[in-house]
Nucleic acid binder design. Structure first.
Length: 422
RNA sequence: GGAGGAGUGUCCGAGUGGUUUAAGGAGGCGGUCUUGAAAACCGUUGUACCGCAAGGUACCGGGGGUUCGAAUCCCUCCUCCUCCGCCA
């Protein structure tokens, strides 16, 4: 959520910032609601002050054995006026809140301005795409051929956009989760967290998935639960409505969860293979830090994600997303893209965002800069470290051999127990 | 799922309709005393919103209601505890 005071005091800055990402801020509606709310607030608070003062007087008169019926009658009308105003204010606040919850974040000044992904900026690339002396297969062809992926039975037991991983495939998936968590906890200083996969509405609102993206989420009945679309939601909300102390920061969490996405708007896209599934595994990195450190932490976060690909010796590149391509809550976002031979291009495998105080304001996550000082909002960041299914796909494709077997990356051999999957 | 109990500030904890601000204690911070520390004593101690300010308003798990006036009474929801049932 944007700072309502910023909108009030620097309206042209807010409008210009959001215009860069193609969003038009409804300034007229905002101003009308905000001004009316404040006007009524002043009015009702004056009335409440009167009521408080007079009610104490009533107590005093009654204790002294006097008759207070005249002022009590007068106060009845004041009470009615207060109730009416309180109702009006509540309604105005609801409307204002609904409006503000649907306003995306303002891009950071270092983000290139652009309408779509064609304006994303290449930051760096690592590794050389392998040259094959045979026609490389796609990961799903390899997986089905090895008997480690079963799409037909997945369709039978669940439906489209699901896969059953079997034998070495299942083991590879599990090995990658362990490998990623081990690297981030023992080499990058993250604390491992294993959160619930179902969360409440307040958590989904806190990180920005709701109210705007309701149709992308799986809602569970009975109960008011949502299945997590990413571990970002439960992990960021760990500190919702908390005031952290400055010496706790920065906080680094690494969490594995399955992720569940309805993929409502992506019919027909990536229907083959395991690139886009309703359920996938992901190790997520989440940081809470002081505002002045968030951009430094952002760079470190991207490097932590990249480190996994380097250890796996998978070629990748880092892209800085332009204003039109970054997510709703992000101020700045890098995508890490891994080389996939069958696509003959790089595909997103990690998305690393700095949300500044956008999520912290929604989720009310603050810290005290110094003992006794006023609390301020923290900055939150997160990034995939990495998407496990896509990593499986990248390994199968980049490490495939002509006979259909797949060489296991060196760092995974102790996790899996074989050198080659055949 | 059934029965009972509870939720108060950083923490413990008192408070079942009114008289200045939620008593008291602990902890934190500042001070006095002391060579220094401890003890003792004194002071101070949350969050948010509105307002140029003085100041005001709200918050006793959440929401709603009764009343001139609610931490206190009523309704509803949530969470935790005890017992019973079911269960990986």
């Amino acid at each position: 959520m944007l700072d309502i005071k910023l909108v009030r005091t620097q309206p042209e800055q807010v409008v210009a910032g959001l215009a860069k990402r193609g969003f038009q801020f409804p300034m007229e509606t905002f101003t009308k609601l905000d001004e009316e709310r404040r006007r009524k607030l002043v009015e009702v608070e004056q009335l409440k002050n009167k009521r408080n003062t007079v009610s104490k007087e009533v107590g005093r008169i009654k204790a002294a054995g006097g008759d207070a019926s005249a002022i009590i009658q007068e106060m009845q009308q004041v009470g009615e006026a207060i109730q009416q105003l309180d109702n009006d204010i509540r309604q105005l606040e609801d409307e204002l809140n609904r409006l503000m919850l649907e306003i995306p974040n303002i891009p950071h000044e270092s983000v290139p301005v652009g309408k779509d992904e064609t304006k994303n900026k290449l930051i760096r690339s690592w590794g050389e795409p392998r040259r094959f002396d045979f026609e490389p297969k796609s990961h799903d062809e390899i997986g089905v051929g090895l008997g480690i992926m079963d799409f037909e039975r997945a369709a039978k037991i669940s439906g489209a956009r699901f896969v059953v991983m079997k034998h070495w495939g299942a083991k590879l998936e599990r090995a990658l989760v362990n490998f990623m968590l081990d690297v981030h906890t023992s080499e990058h200083g993250y604390t491992e967290v294993f959160p619930p996969f179902l969360v409440n509405r307040a958590s989904m609102t806190g990180t920005g998935q709701l109210p705007k993206f309701e149709e992308d989420m799986f809602k569970v009945t009975p109960g008011d639960y949502y299945m997590v679309p990413t571990a970002e939601v439960p992990v960021t909300n760990l500190h919702r409505d908390e005031i952290l102390s400055a010496d706790q920061l920065p906080i680094y969490y690494a969490a594995y969860t399955a992720c569940f996405r309805a993929e409502a708007g992506s019919a027909g896209r990536d229907t083959k293979g395991i690139i886009r599934q309703h359920q996938f595994n992901k190790v997520e990195l989440v940081k809470f830090c002081k505002p002045e450190e968030s951009y430094m932490e952002h760079e470190k976060l991207v490097n932590d994600a990249c480190k996994i690909l380097e250890k796996l010796k998978l070629p990748y590149r880092v892209m800085l997303l332009c204003t039109g391509d970054q997510g709703f809550s992000a101020a700045k976002c890098y995508d890490v893209e891994v080389w996939l031979p069958s696509f003959n291009t790089y595909r997103e495998i990690s998305s690393c965002s700095n949300f500044e105080d956008f999520q912290a304001r929604r989720a009310n996550i603050r810290y005290r800069p110094a003992p006794g000082a006023k609390p301020e909002f923290v900055h939150t960041l997160n990034g995939s470290g990495l998407a496990v299914g896509r990593t499986v796909a990248a390994i199968l494709e980049n490490y495939q051999n002509e006979d259909g077997s797949v060489t296991v990356p060196e760092v995974l051999r102790e996790y899996i127990g074989v050198d080659v999957i055949r």
